[in-house]
Design a protein around this nucleic acid. Structure first.
Lengths: 141, 141
DNA sequence: AGTATCCTCATACTTTTGGGTGAATTGATA
DNA sequence: TATCAATTCACCCAAAAGTATGAGGATACT
């Protein structure tokens, strides 16, 4: 909501500048109408491409964990929590420390997660979580 | 290379149509130059936004591995290849079989990858690869 | 010719992960 | 109350991953 305002303002600013430059066009007679139209086209095409890419990028942003979607897959709250930390690259021991439980507990959770996600390995679980859009840790920067 | 041609052709087609329409402009005298410029601007802004989103989507599509970006991080060709398969959830043995080398070789590669990516574990490497947009395995669907 | 980088492989050892089984506790639910 | 799902934990064993070190061959660049 915040950035959109800036984008909108920027686009409007560029639009104003271009429209303003139309006044100066009468001074420059040697520029044909076709060239003039082409310049505007290219200019706004560039702005549009940039805008489009920015908008799409913002969709992919964020590190939200969709517990709702996790439920749909069949994961319990705790399992979703563990999966979240797993995708952040933490080891079982680190996850255990983070959640104040033993590593054995985490192992149990991870095993159950693998079964529910139909995967064999940790990296595949991370992969699956991304595919199912359970997490959105990409394009953070 | 293939789709880019189509995109290029499409853009050029639209450009031609717009430029062609300039001939008809002389017939419509009541449209001011400002309005004319605005129409072109909006039109190409729309095309640009669409183009931008499509281009970004295509970047995120598939399982392309950006060897160019990998080089920037300092990864060798082989290391990039291994990282690619790693992110697909393959084990070291599976990667070894896929590349027709021994598992020891893969272990060497993975260790070097971890050093270059400044990570400790496999999942973190996958994470890092996503963050750095070395791979684009998301939004497959 | 010498240097550097990459790719390859081995050996040995440690750590992490995964699989299987069993079990105690809690809270909600039929 | 009986049952079920979720959470917790333990023990054991096997597989996979990771670390350290050394080393040979290929290619490319100085």
């Amino acid at each position: 909501m915040n950035k959109s305002t800036w984008v909108y303002g920027g686009v409007m600013g560029v639009l104003l500048i271009v429209l303003q430059s139309l006044n100066y066009r009468t001074l420059i007679k040697d520029i044909s109408l076709e060239v003039y139209g082409g310049i505007i086209a290219i200019l706004f095409l560039a702005v549009g491409i940039w805008l489009g890419s920015v908008l799409i990028k913002r969709v992919n942003e964020g590190t939200l964990f969709s517990f709702v979607k996790s439920k749909e897959v069949g994961l319990s709250n705790r399992e979703a929590e563990v999966l979240q930390l797993m995708t952040e690259g933490l080891s079982n021991q680190e996850i255990a420390d983070r959640l104040f439980v033993s590593m054995n507990t985490i192992k149990t959770h991870t095993s159950n997660i693998y079964v529910k996600l139909h995967v064999k390995r940790r990296t595949q679980a991370v992969q699956k979580a991304s595919e199912l859009q359970l997490i959105h840790t990409l394009s953070k920067n």
